[in-house]
């Protein structure tokens, strides 16, 4: 699995860090919304389900996943 994020869409709602804190963090920006930072672009198998939930529940659809079989 590979992770892509569209920072243009991110407003720092922080759902992702609740679901997969090992993979995402949200960092403060000067005069802009906080933005997601991906800590691990190729998460291990045991983290992938959490990552899917993070992508699914992101209110702004910032996170796109490319599954290995695609």
């Amino acid at each position: 699995m590979k992770i892509r994020v569209d920072l243009d869409l991110c407003q720092g709602h922080s759902v992702c860090i609740d679901e997969a804190p090992e993979v995402f963090s949200v960092e403060d920006q000067l005069d802009d919304y906080p933005k997601v930072k991906v800590l691990n672009f190729q998460p291990s198998a045991e983290l992938q389900n959490q990552v899917r939930l993070a992508a699914r529940y992101c209110p702004n659809k910032v996170i796109t996943l490319i599954e290995d079989n695609e």
């Binding site: 720092g12 709602h13 922080s14 005069d31 802009d32 919304y33 906080p34």
Partner: peptide
């Protein structure tokens, strides 16, 4: 513009997931 961005950021902060 810079203050507007800060205000919007503070506004969204109140609506953060947590």
């Amino acid at each position: 513009p810079d203050k507007m961005k800060s205000q919007l950021k503070i506004q969204v902060d109140a609506l953060r997931y947590q």
